[in-house]
Simulated scan of single mutants.
Amino acid sequence: MKMENILIEKQENIAIVTINRPEKLNALNKATIQELHEGFKSLNEDKSVKVIIVTGSGEKAFVAGADISEFANFSVENGGLLAAKGQEILFDYVQNLSTPVIAAVNGFALGGGLELAMACHFRVASDNAKMGLPEVTLGVIPGYGGTQRLPQLVGKGRAMEMIMSAAMIDAETAKNYGLVNHVVPQAELLEFTKGIATKITKNSSVAIAKAIEAVNANYEDGVNGYETEIKNFGACFGTEDFKEGTTAFLEKRKAVFPGK
């Protein structure tokens, strides 16, 4: 698939996905959502890629929201289908990806942009970042998981206030809320995030994938996260990574994980 709205760059075991629609402040339209799905799918299947970083082109915006012009005239049925497909192919897909995904939030992360950042496994923000869910100003609600993931990250009361007021918060407030893990100067954002990613690449990719699944299980209705943890913990004992990790520990050397 030819990519017209995103850029993908690989640096050793790290892939950087850049949403590249600067003239639209990197707004998510259907084509961009589909390209992101294809890009994440391809990178997840590439065993040389241990971590994915997603960011926006330029310094103004990570993603300034959804492309409103695409759905302004939608019917009730079309609106529901838009949310369902978007959640399936991108937002839920990213959350459940076995390869770690870090959002490097530069500038505005609004509406669908904040929802994409929240779907990632964790977030790093530039000091000029602004985040919010302004959908109620358009007479609609967040439809790409925002009403579910925001309370999980910041708590029900803060999420209710952010959604109902449609107010933006700055990067430091987002950090205090637990919405982002780190805040760094704009010029240092990618290098700082790559530093975290590099630490992750040195660990067992098999174990990390099992950990992602176990953590996510805690937020799934009808799923016992403890049982998922027990199952995945046991499964690790049958991997080559476990054998290498324990052998390296006993031999007092650094492990070189095969990723199997």
Rank of each mutant, 00 (worst) to 15 (best):
A209H: 06
Q148H: 11
Y177G: 02
L114H: 01
L138I: 00
Y177C: 04
M168C: 07
P185M: 03
G222Y: 10
A125E: 04
V215A: 12
K194M: 02
A209S: 15
H121D: 05
V180C: 03
Y226T: 15
P100M: 07
K202W: 08
N181Q: 14
F237L: 15
G155Q: 12
A209T: 12
I141S: 13
G195F: 00
M160W: 08
G234R: 06
N218Y: 11
E229V: 15
K194T: 09
V154L: 05
E240H: 10
Y177L: 06
L150M: 08
M131Q: 03
L179H: 04
A217C: 10
K130A: 03
L116H: 02
T228R: 06
I196C: 08
V206D: 04
C120Q: 05
Y144W: 14
T239E: 05
S205T: 07
V223P: 05
P100N: 09
C236V: 09
Q152S: 04
I141M: 15
S205V: 04
D127N: 08
G195Q: 03
T239K: 06
G146A: 01
I212Y: 07
G195R: 01
C120M: 02
N106F: 00
L114S: 00
T137S: 15
A197I: 09
T147P: 07
N224F: 13
A209M: 07
E161K: 14
A235K: 08
K194E: 10
A207C: 09
G222H: 12
M168R: 14
D127E: 08
P185Q: 01
